[in-house]
Lab assay of single mutants.
Amino acid sequence: LHIEINVNGLRIELHNVSEELAERIREILEKVDDREEARRLAEELIK
């Protein structure tokens, strides 16, 4: 499954994740104000 999410102008592509996991990642990242911090957090979440 390939999912693309957009959060605060940051486009993140997720591969091989469930829709539920992608939604949780999006919800978490929406709470982060700083774009660079959101990017770093996204990288950690999808490892």
Rank of each mutant, 00 (worst) to 15 (best):
L14H: 00
A22M: 10
E30I: 13
I25P: 00
R11F: 15
G9R: 00
K47R: 12
I3N: 02
I28G: 02
E44Q: 12
I46N: 03
L21V: 14
R40Q: 12
E37A: 09
V32S: 10
E36N: 09
R39Q: 12
G9L: 00
H15R: 05
I12D: 01
R24E: 08
I12F: 07
A22S: 05
E44I: 12
E37N: 09
I5Q: 00
E23Y: 04
V7F: 05
E23L: 10
A22Y: 10
E37T: 11
K31Q: 14
A38R: 04
S18M: 03
A38S: 07
V32P: 03
E37R: 11
L21Y: 10
I28P: 00
A42P: 01
E4I: 15
L45I: 13
E23V: 12
N16G: 13
I28D: 01
L41M: 12
E27Q: 12
R26C: 02
S18P: 07
K47Y: 07
E30N: 11
V32L: 11
A22C: 06
R26E: 02
D34W: 08
R26F: 08
L41I: 12
I25S: 00
I25K: 00
R26P: 00
E13S: 12
E27C: 06
I5T: 01
I3T: 05
E43R: 03
L41N: 04
I46C: 09
R11W: 11
V7Y: 02
A42N: 01
E13C: 14
R35P: 15
R11Q: 14
A42L: 14
L29Q: 01
N6G: 02
V7D: 08
E20F: 03
E43G: 08
L14G: 02
G9S: 00
A22P: 01
E19D: 06
R39F: 10
I5F: 01
I12N: 00
D34C: 04
L21G: 04
K31T: 12
N8F: 00
E13V: 15
E37Y: 04
H15C: 09
I3F: 10
E30R: 09
R24Q: 11
K47W: 05
V7L: 06
L1I: 13
R35K: 14
A38G: 06
I28Y: 05
I46S: 09
S18F: 03
I5Y: 00
S18I: 03
V17I: 10
N6M: 06
R35W: 14
E23G: 13
R40G: 05
V17H: 02
K47Q: 12
R39H: 08
I25V: 14
V32H: 12
L1K: 13
L14C: 03
E30D: 09
G9C: 03
I25G: 00
I3P: 02
E37C: 10
H2S: 08
R40N: 14
R11I: 15
H2Q: 06
N8K: 06
H15E: 04
D34T: 09
A38I: 14
E36P: 05
N16I: 06
A38N: 04
D33E: 14
R35E: 13
I28L: 12
A38H: 03
E19V: 15
R26K: 13
N8E: 13
E20V: 11
S18T: 14
R40C: 09
R26S: 05
E30M: 13
I5E: 02
I12H: 01
R40D: 06
K31F: 10
V7C: 07
H15L: 08
V7M: 06
N16E: 06
L10T: 15
E37K: 11
E30V: 12
H15G: 03
E4R: 01
K47G: 13
R39I: 15
A38K: 03
R35G: 13
G9A: 00
E30P: 01
E4V: 15
L1Y: 02
E43L: 08
D33Q: 14
I25D: 00
E44D: 13
N16F: 10
V32Y: 12
D34G: 09
N8H: 05
L1T: 11
E19C: 10
E30G: 11
E20N: 09
A42E: 01
R26Y: 08
V32W: 09
A38Y: 02
E44P: 01
K47P: 07
E37D: 10
L45D: 01
I5W: 00
N6Q: 06
R35N: 13
R24S: 09
E23Q: 13
V17N: 03
R24H: 09
D33R: 10
L21Q: 13
I28F: 08
E27I: 10
E44A: 11
N6V: 12
E37M: 10
E19Y: 12
H2M: 09
R26A: 06
A38T: 09
N16V: 08
E13M: 15
H15N: 05
D34N: 12
K47M: 10
N16P: 03
R26D: 01
A22Q: 04
H15A: 03
E23W: 07
E27D: 13
N8I: 02
I25A: 02
E19H: 15
G9I: 00
L41D: 02
V17Q: 04
E4G: 02
H2T: 14
G9M: 00
V7W: 03
E20Y: 04
E36Q: 09
E36D: 13
E4M: 03
I12M: 07
R40W: 05
E4L: 06
L14P: 00
I3Y: 05
N6D: 15
K47S: 12
L21I: 13
E27R: 14
R26M: 10
R26Q: 07
N8A: 09
K31D: 10
E43T: 07
E20G: 10
R35H: 15
L21H: 08
A42T: 09
H2D: 06
I46H: 04
E4N: 07
R35F: 14
K31G: 13
V17P: 05
E20L: 09
I12K: 00
E27L: 12
E30H: 10
E44R: 05
E44F: 03
R40F: 05
E20W: 04
H15Y: 05
V32E: 08
V7Q: 05
K47T: 12
L10G: 10
I25E: 00
A22D: 01
I5A: 00
S18V: 04
I3W: 08
V32C: 04
I28S: 06
L1H: 12
R11E: 15
V17Y: 05
E4A: 08
I3V: 11
V32N: 11
I3D: 02
E19Q: 13
I28N: 02
L1G: 13
E19N: 12
I28T: 08
N8Q: 03
V17G: 11
E23M: 11
S18R: 04
A42Q: 02
L14D: 01
R24P: 00
R39G: 07
L1F: 04
L45G: 02
E27Y: 02
N6H: 09
A42Y: 08
R11M: 15
S18H: 05
D34Y: 04
N8R: 05
R11L: 15
R26H: 05
N6E: 15
I28R: 08
E19A: 14
E36L: 08
R35Q: 13
E20D: 11
V17F: 06
V17W: 07
R24T: 09
D33K: 14
A22W: 07
K47C: 06
R39A: 13
D33A: 12
L14N: 00
I5L: 09
D34K: 07
R11C: 09
E19M: 15
H2L: 09
E19I: 15
D34P: 04
V17D: 02
E36K: 09
R11H: 15
R24N: 09
V32T: 13
L21T: 12
L14R: 00
I46G: 04
K47H: 11
R40K: 12
N8G: 14
N6Y: 01
A22L: 12
E23F: 07
E44V: 08
R39S: 11
V32K: 04
L29I: 07
V17S: 05
I3S: 03
L29W: 02
L10D: 15
L1P: 08
S18Y: 04
E43P: 03
R11K: 14
L45R: 01
G9T: 00
E36T: 10
I28V: 10
A42F: 11
K31A: 11
L14T: 01
G9N: 06
R24L: 10
R35C: 07
S18W: 04
L45H: 05
E30Y: 06
D33L: 15
R24K: 13
R40I: 12
E30T: 12
L21M: 13
E37H: 11
R35Y: 14
L1M: 13
G9H: 02
E27T: 12
I28M: 11
E23K: 13
V17E: 03
L10A: 14
I28A: 14
V7I: 15
L21S: 07
E20A: 14
D33T: 14
I12T: 01
H15Q: 05
V32A: 10
N16L: 07
N6P: 02
E43S: 04
A22I: 14
E44C: 10
V7H: 11
R24I: 10
H2G: 04
E36F: 05
D34Q: 07
S18G: 09
I5K: 00
R26I: 10
A22T: 06
L45N: 01
R24W: 06
L14F: 06
L45P: 01
R39E: 08
R24Y: 11
L45K: 02
I3M: 05
I3K: 03
H2W: 02
I5G: 01
I3G: 02
I46A: 15
L45C: 06
L14E: 01
L41Y: 05
R40S: 10
N6K: 03
L21K: 05
G9Y: 00
E19S: 13
A42S: 06
I28Q: 07
I25Q: 00
E36V: 08
A38L: 15
G9F: 00
I3R: 04
R39W: 13
N8T: 01
E13H: 10
N6W: 01
E13D: 04
I25R: 00
I25M: 05
E4H: 09
A22G: 05
E4S: 11
E23D: 13
L10S: 14
R11Y: 15
